[in-house]
């Protein structure tokens, strides 16, 4: 039986996470990143990989300084940011009311659900070439792609949030004489807020993707344009700097929405 016992302890350790102190996993994570960077730095120097294709952390660091100093970085960033902000704001303005309508009206839902679901599932990015034909190669086509990427996750999640609102709460409100408008503003909106924000969070990712894809496809300026330029010039270090900047932007924005989402979720007793 002693064999069984030692096995049992192992299961314990794996299945129940509180058996590890927090510091252990953090240490391992940090170590894992450090080793990755070291390997990346050393491998080209040992000739294990061709540094021309992989660059090195030290080179990327230096390239980052160059990019900020001399590459007109703010100009490109401003263009990409404008595309993102405009497309995303438009998407927000359209999707939340539309999602609310779909969440509260059965007929609207039955009518609009099939095309919406198809567009939610399908990669809206394939509409980019059409957008370029309609709107040209400058800002408007990118704004359209961001808009198309961001709108559907918000619609779908707003709709789901409204539909999942507690029927008992609504009944209780009605019993106190609340009318439809009261129910909507006092119950449906607050209780679906976490779900709406989840849609917004997903939409951020798709919006950033829209900007990058749009600019990679055809553009005269913007961070995606810079990516393409340095890609074809084999300046991997600068390419990585721009890719990292985009990642950091996406990560920061997603984290902010998640923070808001968690805060809103905590209002509600679970």
């Amino acid at each position: 039986m002693s064999v069984v016992q030692s096995d049992a302890n192992k299961i314990n350790a794996n299945a129940m996470k509180f058996d590890w102190p927090v510091s252990r996993s953090t240490t391992i994570s940090v170590l894992s990143v450090v080793i990755f960077f070291l390997a990346w730095q050393i491998a080209p120097e040992l000739g294990l990989v061709n540094g021309r294709f992989t660059s090195q952390p030290s080179k990327v660091y230096l390239a980052a300084i160059e990019v900020f100093r001399t590459d007109n970085f703010l100009f490109h960033a401003r263009i990409s940011l404008t595309e993102f902000v405009l497309g995303f704001s438009l998407a927000l303005a359209v999707s939340v009311p539309l999602g609310a309508l779909l969440g509260t009206s059965r007929y609207a839902r039955l009518l609009l659900d099939p095309p919406l679901m198809a567009l939610y599932i399908a990669p809206t990015l394939i509409l980019l070439p059409i957008m370029v034909i309609w709107l040209g190669i400058d800002l408007p086509s990118k704004i359209a792609v961001v808009f198309l990427g961001a709108i559907f996750p918000i619609i779908v999640n707003t709709m789901a949030g409204m539909r999942e609102a507690d029927a008992q709460l609504i009944r209780a409100a009605r019993s106190f004489g609340a009318n439809r408008f009261d129910v909507f503003t006092r119950i449906l909106i607050p209780s679906s807020l976490p779900s709406i924000l989840m849609g917004v969070r997903l939409a951020v990712g798709r919006g950033v993707l829209g900007v990058v894809v749009g600019e990679l496809y055809v553009s005269q300026a913007g961070v995606g344009h810079q990516l393409m330029t340095y890609g074809s010039a084999m300046r991997i270090d600068r390419l990585l700097v721009y890719a990292l900047i985009i990642s950091i932007f996406g990560y920061t924005l997603t984290s902010l929405v998640r923070l808001l989402e968690n805060r809103v979720r905590n209002w509600r007793p679970q």
Binding site: V212, G231, A243, S247
Partner: peptide, 10 residues
């Protein structure tokens, strides 16, 4: 957090 497509040129 990283849009994979940003690494397309790579």
């Amino acid at each position: 957090s990283a849009p994979t497509i940003a690494f397309y040129p790579l």
